[in-house]
Amino acid sequence: MRTSLLPRGRGTASNPPNRFAPTRIIASDDGWQEEVPPCGATEVRQETAKSIISRNQSPDLPFDRSLNPYRGCEHGCIYCYARPSHAYWDLSPGLDFETKLIAKHNAPALLAQALGKPGYACAPINLGANTDPYQPIERQQQLTRRCLQVLLDHRHPLTIVTKGALILRDLDLLSELARQRLVAVYISLTSLDDELKRILEPRAAAPAARLRAIRVLREQGIPVGVLCAPIIPMINDMELEGLLQAARQAGAQSASYMLLRLPREVAPLFEDWLHAHYPQRAEHVLSLIRQSRGGALYDSRFGQRFRGEGAFAELLAQRFKLASKRLGLDRREAFELDCSRFCPPGGQLALL
């Protein structure tokens, strides 16, 4: 069901059934609904997780392990590729994903246990691979901060991907991690347009706040890169060079980008969003996506899923390459993290 009546502060009004649901309810517009539906309060459920470090063998990712203290994300980004994961908990990838959140309350303790297991080999852990570790509920839950403390205590390297300005709360821990070459931060920057941000990423930090986060982190000596993601044809692709320029002026040292991904239930959610906010442009946007995805809205193949193929994708890659080289954002030497200092729980930390 396509609707322009979106809940205030949410990315979608739709709550489609997850792909594992045995029954489905189909809503229809009878013409009586005229008011914008309420956004609904955020509900946080506590989960006693059994494990905390996720492993991957993807050749597209620069890390082989990640940690996510939360399931679901209150930022409500309509394009979020993690939305389909909510189906595993019998929840909708739609509104449920941004309103019914799960906090792994024992994440810090599980992390310490995992680091202390015999045979554990140290390599950087990524925070933020699935959902944002600095989404609004982190202010109260503080699971990300407590995990940072565990990693610092045992001198374990990590990377962080976030669009949350709340990361500045943890400058004390991040500064010490950076001093020991144990952390690199990537700030996701999607648009410099506040209005586009409001409808695309309703509860994420404003563009100015993200640029300020880059600036403050760099002033504290913390390595920072910018992630221009996702790039959406005819929505924000025209901002690419401007995003890179603004990030470089704020102090970013490296840059990357990603073409819009629409796996599983994300595709129909994004289509509804397009028709609600850009009805005259929607079909053109979808056409360019299909041209970049072999005729479909999504291509999951390694090597293709982040970049796409075809004329539009190739032009985008060339634009990024030229702009990042011109701005000096194509260097990665500042992001070499030190795994040699790791001391597992129960081990003896070196004095120097």
Rank of each mutant, 00 (worst) to 15 (best):
F20I: 09
R218E: 03
A229N: 01
G76M: 02
M258S: 14
I232R: 07
L211I: 09
I137Q: 11
Q140H: 14
S287K: 11
E333K: 15
R290G: 09
A41Q: 09
Q253T: 11
R293H: 06
P69V: 00
T3W: 10
R331H: 14
R332A: 14
I53R: 08
L5W: 11
A267H: 10
I137W: 05
G128I: 01
A276Y: 04
Y186N: 01
D170R: 03
R218F: 05
R203H: 02
A204V: 09
C80Y: 00
D338P: 00
L5V: 11
R341F: 01
P157E: 03
L196R: 09
I289W: 05
A87G: 15
L177C: 07
F335D: 12
K100F: 04
V150C: 00
Q180P: 00
L240P: 02
L288F: 10
P108E: 09
A296N: 11
D96G: 02
C122E: 00
Y79M: 05
Q141D: 15
A255H: 06
R181G: 08
W89F: 12
T48R: 06
L101T: 07
A123W: 03
I160L: 13
H284R: 14
T23Q: 14
R169I: 06
L111Y: 14
S300W: 01
L315S: 14
